[in-house]
Each structure stands twice: as C-alpha cells, then as structure tokens.
Amino acid sequence: MLVVDDDERALRSIAAVLSADVDAVTCSSAEHALKLLAVRQFHLVCSDFLMPGMKGDELLRRVSSLPVYTSCLLITGADEYIRSMSGSHNYVILKPFDPDRLIGIVLQLSRLADMKRSVHSMTDSLGSQGPTGAAAGGEVVSCERPDGGSLPDSTPAPPTSRLGSRGAVGPTARGPQQGPELTRADPAAPGAPWRTCR
C-alpha cells in the first residue's frame, strides 16, 4: 500500500502500525504519490486530507480514475473535511484512530482491490476467448452490491491475516483483534450520513 502524509511523524507512525501486516511505501505529498502510481501498482492508497498543494480527497479522486482498481482510504481530523463529507464517496477514518481498527480496514480494502482485480482479469480473459454471457451459455455476475456499495457486509477482514507484497493473504502472529468497523459517507441517506460495515 501507499501511505501519503506531509507530517513526517504521522507518516512514520502509520507505517509502524501497519508494518507487521502490510508492505507500506510512504511519501510526503500527493504530487510524489502520483509519480509513484505512474510506475507502480498498489492495492491501496491511504492519504491524509490537509496537505500543501493537492489535498487528499483530490489525490484519491485521481487514484479512483486509474485503469487498475485501487482502494482508497482518507485519514483526517480536519473540521473542513468533516463538515463537507456528507457528499463524499471516500472510505474515511477519523483521527485519532485505534491502530487495530486501522489495520482491519486496511486489510479489508486491500482484499477488496485484489478481488476486483481478479474479477476484471477473468472478465478480460473471457472476452478475449470469444462470446460471453448468454451467447456463451453462461452468465456474467457483478461483484457490486445492488445499493452501489463495494465492501460485502458479511466478509470482514480476518483479524489474523497478513498481506504480503504480492497481495497473498496468510497467517500472522498478531493476537486476536476486534473486528474492523468501516465508515463511509452515504449521500443517499441525508438523515443518516454514515453507513457502518462490519
């Protein structure tokens, strides 16, 4: 994953929290992050919101337009973002955050990216081999939920998993953790702007 924050201390802290579970690359600006994304693929980009130059939400908008699916997570304590996030489509974790909760969300979003890439790869492969869907006697199934959400509510990241550099998931020595709680702004529900996935 790629972690972006202009605060060097915060950057080191996040990288240290995640170091036992994921391979994290760090950088201190959105502009540098875009240069890295042009030459490398990451399962997840985790960005601070308030940074000099390009803000984190703009960086994540650009990440979501990449040809290869990449999960996005915004970390913020900024009042400016909190006041305006009712119309946001970013996955968000607010500062100060619980380290185990951050690890759980990062693993869940990384698994989501791996799953979506596999589906896209399989779809591309089927497309190059001839007709698909009804013409091939089969059915193309979408991994999107009907309500537009991306993360399955019933499949939280296992608390004892390790994401390697190639996206493989395997055991780790980390002890039991509380299941992750993922919050996402939901513009479709103005009276209840937050949706919680467990």
Results as ranks from 00 to 15, higher is better:
residue 37 L to D: 02
residue 67 P to H: 09
residue 13 S to L: 05
residue 165 S to Y: 12
residue 94 L to A: 12
residue 69 Y to Q: 08
residue 17 V to L: 06
residue 32 H to G: 08
residue 42 F to I: 02
residue 176 P to W: 09
residue 65 S to F: 12
residue 148 G to E: 10
residue 8 E to Y: 15
residue 24 A to G: 03
residue 130 G to P: 08
residue 9 R to C: 09
residue 145 R to M: 14
residue 62 R to D: 10
residue 92 V to Q: 04
residue 53 G to T: 02
residue 87 G to L: 07
residue 118 S to M: 13
residue 42 F to E: 04
residue 48 D to A: 11
residue 80 E to N: 06
residue 9 R to H: 15
residue 18 L to A: 05
residue 58 E to A: 05
residue 47 S to G: 02
residue 55 K to R: 14
residue 20 A to D: 14
residue 193 P to F: 03
residue 195 R to P: 06
residue 144 E to R: 07
residue 22 V to C: 10
residue 153 D to Q: 12
residue 124 D to F: 13
residue 73 L to W: 03
residue 140 V to Q: 13
residue 107 L to F: 00
residue 33 A to T: 00
residue 8 E to G: 12
residue 130 G to F: 11
residue 66 L to N: 04
residue 158 P to G: 13
residue 137 G to P: 00
residue 57 D to R: 03
residue 57 D to M: 00
residue 132 T to M: 10
residue 71 S to E: 07
residue 137 G to K: 05
residue 151 L to V: 08
residue 160 T to E: 15
residue 196 T to N: 02
residue 48 D to C: 03
residue 3 V to G: 01
residue 83 R to I: 13
residue 143 C to R: 04
residue 26 T to N: 05
residue 99 P to Y: 01
residue 5 D to L: 01
residue 52 P to H: 05
residue 135 A to S: 08
residue 49 F to S: 02
residue 11 L to K: 00
residue 76 T to G: 07
residue 112 L to H: 01
residue 131 P to M: 06
